[in-house]
Nucleic acid binder design. Structure first.
Lengths: 155, 155
DNA sequence: GATGAAACCGTTGACGC
DNA sequence: GCGTCAACGGTTTCATC
């Protein structure tokens, strides 16, 4: 259940490239291929590796616009919270969502094809929702750094 | 260079699970395995699939804290911008960074082991930097939705 | 942890449609 | 462009030390 330096090195490499051949991975980790295989299997079963996914280029599929939207909810009922969360999870244009301290309740990252689609999004998701008290949109001019890589302590 | 419905379906599946066997992927797409292989190769070469990566569970590796930090820079020189961007890209605790319109210049997603490490981070990255005029931190209470999945129009 | 064998899957290229 | 087939190489699992 606890991870040693070898595990962390495996994760560190796979975070960047999940398709690296086991042999090259083994070289970088300093273990035999069989050992790396066993560790890999364990890391996947433990859900330390939660998923292995393809990262698609937004440009190539025509998703030109990214937005950061802060949302403030009405405070009346706690039930609103889970309602809103469920809606978020079912809305593919919301790529990411964080429940945060401070003035806003949620910070959303929203991706659309163009401004028109963002307008539809806002109308569908916010206007019809009595839970939403206020929202504020920032347009993303550059996705300077994007990824799910974690800072791992690989001594 | 343009993608048809088959390509979009392939991407849609691989965005969620990049380790699905080609045979099952083919079934879901409605093409032969060879055809899916050809498309897959093309999508990777084109960089439509920019990367295939392992998603590591933050909890499992002891990364308990996430922060959203908005940063405002000094306006004196444009050179500051690229300096700051370079720093961001070399700082693994900054998982994501967006250059945005509005009051702030950048929105950062920062991940650390604990509050103490966030304190070190702030001192290292912001205090020593004369380009940084102001920054504002929100603590993330819940990572409600996290991923790099794009909304693809799969009819 | 290492080694080796067997089964499985992914990849490529050739063929015809 | 698609489908089938065959061949190669890498991956995965298992038994063994």
């Amino acid at each position: 259940m606890t991870l040693d330096q070898h595990d962390l090195r495996i994760l560190s490499v796979l975070q960047t490239n999940a398709r690296i051949p086991i042999e090259r991975l083994s070289e970088q980790v300093g273990l035999s291929t069989a050992s790396v295989q066993r560790r890999l299997k364990r890391l996947r079963q433990q859900q330390t590796i939660a998923a292995e996914v393809a990262v698609v280029s937004p440009k190539r599929v025509g998703l030109a616009m990214t937005f950061m939207v802060s949302v403030e909810l009405e405070r009346d009922e706690l039930r609103f919270l889970s309602e809103f969360k469920a809606k978020i999870k079912n809305e593919p244009r919301i790529q990411q969502c964080y429940y945060v301290t401070g003035d806003a309740d949620f910070m959303l990252i929203v991706m659309t094809r163009d401004m028109e689609e963002f307008n539809s999004f806002v109308q569908e998701v916010f206007y019809g929702d009595k839970n939403v008290r206020r929202y504020k949109t920032s347009v993303v001019m550059e996705r300077t750094k994007v990824g799910l890589e974690l800072p791992l302590p690989t001594g």
